[in-house]
C-alpha cells in the first residue's frame, strides 16, 4: 500500500462479518448433523402449505405427483426408507439430481414450483 488508510474500522467490520458468517454456518451445519441423525419424519411443503407428511420408517413405497399452480409438476418417490424427487417438468432438473433426502440442512428444493421436501423437525 502506498498510503495508510485513515481508518481500518470498515475493513475490520467486513472481516468480522465474513468470519461470523463462515463460523456461524459451520456451527449451524454441525448442530444440524447432530440433531438430524434420527429424523425420519418428512414433510412436503408447497408455497407455505404442508401437502404431505410421512414417517419414512413406516410409509409404504409410493410415487406421488404434485401439480404446481403454474401448470408444472413434480413427482416424488418413497422407497427403501428414502424419499427423493424422481421427475419434474422443469428444464434444469436440480431437484431430481439432488437425490434422496439425507440431511436436515439439505432439503430438496424445487424453486420454480415452490416445492420443498425436508425433515419435519427442521425448525422446532
Amino acid at each position: 500500500m502506498t498510503k495508510k488508510d485513515p481508518s481500518r474500522a470498515p475493513l475490520i467490520a467486513v472481516a468480522v462479518f465474513v468470519i461470523v458468517a463462515a463460523l456461524g454456518s459451520v456451527v449451524w451445519l454441525l448442530v444440524g448433523m447432530l440433531r438430524g441423525a434420527d429424523a425420519r419424519r418428512v414433510e412436503v411443503v408447497q408455497g407455505g402449505n404442508v401437502l404431505y407428511t410421512y414417517d419414512l420408517a413406516t410409509a409404504s413405497p409410493q410415487t406421488v405427483r404434485i401439480e404446481a399452480p403454474d401448470g408444472g409438476w413434480n413427482e416424488f418417490t418413497i422407497a427403501d426408507g428414502e424419499i427423493r424427487m424422481t421427475a419434474a417438468d422443469c428444464p434444469d432438473q436440480t431437484c431430481v439430481h439432488m437425490g434422496p433426502l439425507r440431511a436436515e440442512n439439505l432439503p430438496i428444493v424445487c424453486l420454480p414450483h415452490q416445492l420443498v421436501i425436508r425433515f419435519e423437525d427442521a425448525d422446532t
Partner: peptide, 20 residues
Amino acid sequence: LLMRTTAVLSLLPVLLLSGC
C-alpha cells in the same frame, strides 16, 4: 418471500459456506 415458506432457510448454511 416467493415460496412463502421458511422451509428453504435450512439450506442457508450450506449456501453460505459454499459462497465463502
